[in-house]
Design a protein around this nucleic acid. Structure first.
Ligand code: MN
Ligand code: MN
Ligand code: ZN
Ligand code: ZN
Lengths: 142, 142
DNA sequence: ATGCATTTGAGATTCATTCTCAATAAAGTT
DNA sequence: AACTTTATTGAGAATGAATCTCAAATGCAT
């Protein structure tokens, strides 16, 4: 919790970026949110808390959160980019139900190893995994 | 080559969809294209051949090609949806270079097995895999 | 050929994301 | 605490991919 905050602040300083109120508000919202979220979700979440930040600023700040390692762009849903906060969350893959939209997560230690091997064969340096599948969840299967 | 054409025609008939000139032109363009392509790529490719089809029709036809199993939505690049034709192409994963944009492909038989197992644990029925990673290709690594 | 339902093309529309720019806030200096 | 400099913000305009609309064209069964 504190850890991530410090990480972000250090990141901003190292880039000579100012520690502004909106940047802190957005970071806190992101850390509080343990789901997959899009920009509008964040915007509403922040408004609920009686804080206020414009959409433009959220759009501008997300790349910073990504570069600092707190957030990852994870999926696309309903033609919107979806994010999730990653610090402290293990790498995982997504099973997306095409019927109800539910997103299941599943950890992928072994898969990771295999993919690393494939990347090595290609002489490719992975910086981010993007693994998933779509189909039907157990409830929608019948 | 013929195989796919027949498959597509059968699909259209089974859905009571008409076998129109634009639908055939688009299908042929897709089959000739062994790369990853977006709608504009297809549009230009078709225009080169002195054929003519509107963008609107391409947008409308791609879902049909996907449903018929000839095409798969594969990636997003420069905020455009990217497709590739799948019939006859083995399942594969994508390594995308964040520096030069190059896309490497790598087959994933073993990975597939592991993911199938994970899906089984979740009682999830996979209909489409979506596997990849971003990072630096061998040329951009230095 | 004729008639009817489907499909097409052109342009309008939508909507997520990015951009612009005047007003504001951060942070360093006196 | 007031002053300076420079980055950042908010509001709304702009962009652009994808979708929609509707009159004209086409496929297809008779
Ligand atoms: Mn997730
Ligand atoms: Mn591919
Ligand atoms: Zn479901
Ligand atoms: Zn590269």
């Amino acid at each position: 919790m504190k850890q991530e905050k410090v990480l972000y602040q250090d990141f901003l300083q190292s880039k000579n970026l100012k520690l502004t109120k909106p940047r802190l508000i957005i970071m806190e919202a992101v850390l509080e949110n343990h789901d997959h979220f899009n920009v509008d979700d964040l915007y509403e979440q922040i408004k609920m808390k009686h804080k206020d930040v414009s959409r433009a600023t959220i759009y501008r700040t997300i790349p910073l959160l990504i570069e600092s390692g707190l957030v990852k762009q994870s999926l696309r849903c309903e033609s919107k980019d979806i994010y999730e906060h990653t610090y402290g969350h293990e790498n995982h893959l997504h099973f997306i139900c095409t019927n109800c939209g539910k997103i299941l997560e599943s950890s992928f230690n072994e898969v990771e190893k295999l993919i690393n091997q494939l990347a090595k064969n290609e002489n490719f340096k992975i910086s981010e995994y993007n693994l998933g599948a779509s189909g039907l969840c157990k409830d929608c299967k019948k």
